[in-house]
């Protein structure tokens, strides 16, 4: 499951922009501008829709919501605990 989530998130990021050289799972996609204030709403909805979860304001402001690795952990936890 972790890998499915990871590939889905990476796919969304790649559709937004070519990933910078050296960008890895710990890379900050907000700071890099890959997901910007214009793209964030659709990004969240795509994650919510694909994994049937709900992403809250607090989630968006958390450190996890900045890297692929963090998002995979956040989404996995929501799926496992049935927080939707």
């Amino acid at each position: 499951m972790h890998n499915d989530i990871r590939l889905f998130v990476l796919g969304l990021l790649e559709k937004k922009s070519r990933l910078p050289k050296g960008f890895d799972d710990a890379g900050d996609f907000i700071k890099a501008g890959i997901i910007d204030s214009m793209g964030i709403i659709k990004f969240i909805l795509e994650l919510e829709s694909r994994f049937d979860i709900e992403i809250t304001e607090a989630d968006i402001e958390s450190e996890k919501f900045r890297s692929v690795q963090g998002l995979v952990e956040m989404i996995s936890l929501k799926i496992a605990t049935g927080v939707a």
Binding site: K16, G39, I41, K42, L45, S49
Partner: peptide
């Protein structure tokens, strides 16, 4: 409805 918009509108068009 928000999922409907997500599927059919580009990111810059998403209602906030």
């Amino acid at each position: 409805l928000r999922f409907h918009c997500c599927e059919r509108l580009a990111d810059f068009q998403q209602p906030r």
